[in-house]
Design a protein around this nucleic acid. Structure first.
Lengths: 243, 243
DNA sequence: CGATCAGTTGAGAATGGTCAAATTCGGTGG
DNA sequence: CCACCGAATTTGACCATTCTCAACTGATCG
């Protein structure tokens, strides 16, 4: 039994009860662990045979660049999340990913993952679960972009980030430390940086949230939750589904 | 060796070379095949222990309804696509899905899929691949909503739909039959139905695409592709990745 | 032959974008 | 400690895209 678990192991264990064999296979994913500076691009859109990464420490984001140079951030990754998992199953990768803060990440080769799948089927199921959870977040983000106003969009985004961080054990209902700039928010929410600033000011003046100096403070989380139409349970997992 | 393959089998075979065992496991997914009328809701957001479906014939869409009653369509499903795959791995399903046309679909229980995973690891990999392909489409859609103008968004959407249908063998570069209403387009693209109408008129007047009477005609597909910044290859798979 | 639903069009309003110019803040070198 | 630099944030004025409301057309169907 391992005492010190990686964030990924902790996450997957919340879904499936993993055997010792599964755990040691997972441990092998963490051999090539390295550190990358803030801003470093780990995954390059269009690259072939790109390997994936498991984030162990820090924040990252995945995004696409449009022909006109604009950027759309698809999601942010926190410790325990995969980076570029789709590159394992596709010849070329369809998005880029970069470190938001200085990060620690383990490189995982496509063959590592595919081999693990054939020998450890429960692990395969667990990884599919993790991928589904990612997709659920992307879907929620898509709804956010398609049908919510800038203000509600921002509120929803900050609440979701807060919920994710709470699950990982960082931050609580009062707020969280947040290394994102207003440009990150703009690129994630499909807004201009100028408008992000105005929306943040308005939310602050209404006494709902404060985003300043690398910290998000939920001044009135219940009002904010109502405004955003946010379901606080949607990422929650009430104990392992598979035993 | 089966002569008549299901659309799903054909799709998965484009990615992994499936053994006869895999194929017969896959065939078992198609026992409970049924027909549903246009508009029927097969998957209900918030439901527990919801089963999934494999679409065999017709078009469907998955979507979320917001507190204010607005709808955001996340994706359209064509023959060979899964409906509600995430319900297999989550206790409650986070979106709804309904038939756009009259459809034929096979109900698949969560246990069918999870059992198949433990006995047929290649199939597990193939399903993860299909899920990743779905996610790639959702990501592209997200970028569409976040960073493209209504006109470019529409152009991109119609080209993508055309590309998917071409892969399935329906339609070609000249156009395709399309059962969607302008309301479907509005709910998918995050626009009002009124604006959808204006955008379609403009694209038609510019001689780029015509969307009328259940048919999409690419009047000038190369100009349209440039306008949309569309990569025609992004869904393409050049022969099986795993042998 | 009404009723209904998808599609069309116009006018005015609102949301969010662009451009340009401050201002603040965290370093960094002297 | 202080002056200075670049990056991030803030604000104002004006503009563009898209929405809303409302009315009208045309097809289909019982």
């Amino acid at each position: 039994m391992l005492i010190l678990q990686s964030p990924l192991t902790r996450k997957l264990s919340a879904f499936v009860a993993l055997s010792d064999d599964d755990l040691s296979t997972l441990a092998r994913f963490h051999r090539r662990r390295r550190s990358f500076p803030s801003g470093h691009e780990l995954i390059h859109e269009g690259e072939r045979n790109q390997s994936a990464f498991i984030l162990a420490e820090g924040w990252a984001c995945s995004y696409k660049i449009l022909p006109n140079g604009e950027r759309q951030i698809v999601n942010f990754q926190l410790p325990g999340d995969f980076l570029g998992l789709r590159s394992v199953l596709f010849r070329t990768i369809d998005h880029s990913a970069q470190a938001v803060t200085r990060i620690e990440a383990s490189e995982v080769l496509a063959s590592d993952i595919l081999d693990a799948f054939s020998t450890a089927p429960r692990l395969a199921t667990a990884v599919l679960w993790a991928a589904s959870r990612d997709e659920a977040m992307v879907v929620e983000h898509l709804v956010n972009l398609g049908r919510r106003s800038a203000e509600v969009r921002m509120a929803h985004f900050l609440l979701e980030l807060g919920a994710r961080l709470k699950l990982v054990g960082v931050g609580d209902n009062s707020g969280f430390d947040c290394p994102l700039t207003q440009y990150h928010l703009a690129d994630a929410l499909g807004l201009s940086a100028v408008h992000v600033n105005r929306v943040l000011r308005h939310l602050r003046e209404e006494g709902l949230v404060t985003f300043q100096k690398g910290r998000v403070i939920f001044d009135d989380i219940s009002k904010l939750t109502v405004l955003a139409g946010f379901d606080p349970d949607y990422l929650d997992q009430e104990g392992p589904l598979l035993r």
